[in-house]
Simulated scan of single mutants.
Amino acid sequence: MLHENWKDNEPLKQVKVVHTDAKKFTVSDMLTIGKTYDVVNETEEYYQIIDNSGHVGGYYKTYFEEV
């Protein structure tokens, strides 16, 4: 499966967190404002990044700006 190799692949780009104001979920535990993360996969709505837990997580693009 493709997602099993994401942590080992070369990052596509880097993004910086600009806010963690989520309406439905708590993302402030997994994302730090001002920190830069490597994007391992990207869809139309989401970035999959290696977050503060050390695992790959999917987050809305609205939390980030491209570096």
Rank of each mutant, 00 (worst) to 15 (best):
Y47C: 06
G34Q: 13
Y59P: 03
T43G: 08
T43A: 11
V18C: 11
L31Y: 10
D21G: 02
I50L: 01
I33T: 11
H19I: 02
N5P: 00
S28R: 13
E65R: 06
N5S: 14
K13N: 03
T32V: 08
F64N: 07
I49D: 04
I33Y: 05
H55Q: 12
P11M: 02
K35W: 08
T26L: 12
S53D: 13
V27I: 15
V27R: 11
K13D: 01
W6A: 04
G57L: 04
E65K: 11
T32Q: 15
Q14R: 13
I49K: 08
Y46S: 04
Q48P: 00
Q48D: 08
N9E: 14
E66C: 02
T62F: 12
K13I: 03
D21E: 15
Q48K: 09
S53Y: 13
V18Q: 07
D51E: 07
H3T: 06
Y59W: 08
E66Q: 09
N5V: 14
G54D: 06
K16I: 11
D29I: 01
V27G: 10
D29Y: 01
K24A: 11
G54F: 13
I49F: 03
P11H: 04
K7R: 13
E66Y: 10
H3I: 02
T36E: 14
E45Q: 14
I50M: 08
D8M: 03
A22C: 05
K13H: 04
G34V: 06
F64A: 09
D51W: 09
D8G: 00
E66I: 10
K35P: 03
D8A: 11
G57I: 00
H19S: 09
K61H: 06
T32P: 02
Y47G: 05
Q48M: 08
N9V: 06
M1Q: 07
F64W: 04
S53I: 09
D21W: 04
K23M: 14
V40R: 13
I49C: 06
H19G: 09
N9I: 12
E66L: 14
T36H: 07
N5E: 15
Y37M: 12
D8F: 12
K61F: 05
K35S: 07
D29K: 05
